[in-house]
Nucleic acid binder design. Structure first.
Lengths: 146, 146
DNA sequence: GCCCAATGTTGGTGCGACCAACATTAGTGG
DNA sequence: CCACTAATGTTGGTCGCACCAACATTGGGC
């Protein structure tokens, strides 16, 4: 494979965005085999950890735009992984709930995601993975204000 | 800001892809101010470091699809940053050359890119940045076969 | 000389991220 | 209590980056 220009290869932004391409491909392949996409997993995970929520709250937790939440929740409803009903206590708000089938789907996706992590970080030792995770967490926190 | 589900926040693939979002925004903003996009910078950098090249070679070096190289080179030609002419030694092949104006544009983009790196890695010390870069380089190398 | 690989090009696809606008409802400050 | 603002759901877009298939054309290997 031809070499990447040095001024590119040396830039953290290049390393991160290029590695993100591979990470997405690995995760995407695993999710596709289970009939899901990234947005679906995020929503299922948020519902599982924090319980039923409005679409707006899901959007904030999953770092998704409201309009994209609409589409993703719609898909999950069609698949029976999620229920969506008007919130009785709150006029306009919807209440999105994880179904039993949704919880099972989440488990499948979790396994696929774990495999993807292993593939992604293959060359690193457990300690190196720890170091990398901590550094990335610190940097990301800086860019997710408040 | 609402908290991200833990099973997401703990995954390296999440950290990398989310950080890539911020990295791209920072770089994009800098490039946009100079009238360029990511693909343009890659090509200018490759031409500067390795000299005139065919579009296919640019694609391999810049990790771009051939078809995307066509569009990006076309844009650079329109801006006068690059010359494109049939390779006399090689029938079908094109020879893409960096112009003087293109070299200046590359310098502008380099400065913008350097500022973006600083913004991106703000919370990290110089040593931590070094560690992060080395780890990312190792992982990325694994996923760029041969 | 023939076949295969490489090249340039056109015209698509998809995901993830994002934005504007609108209607509707919930709070909040006078 | 009422007016105004904030929040919510929804529709219907845009954009960058990555990628694919197909085709015509040309070069090099056998």
């Amino acid at each position: 494979m031809e070499e990447v220009p040095e001024r590119l290869a040396a830039k953290p932004s290049w390393l991160i965005t290029q590695l993100a391409v591979h990470a997405r491909r690995l995760v995407f392949d695993g999710f596709t085999a289970a009939g899901a996409r990234g947005y679906h997993y995020r929503i299922l995970a948020a519902l599982d950890e924090f319980g039923a929520a409005s679409q707006a709250e899901l959007g904030r937790r999953c770092r998704m735009d409201r309009s994209d939440v609409v589409a993703a929740v719609g898909g999950l409803v069609d698949q029976g992984f999620v229920d969506k009903a008007p919130d009785p206590d709150h006029g306009r708000r919807n209440k999105v709930t994880l179904t039993r089938a949704g919880a099972q789907q989440l488990q499948r996706l979790d396994r696929a995601l774990d495999r993807a992590q292993d593939d992604l970080l293959q060359p690193l030792s457990a300690e190196d993975r720890e170091v990398l995770t901590r550094l990335l967490t610190r940097v990301l926190a800086r860019h997710e204000p408040k």
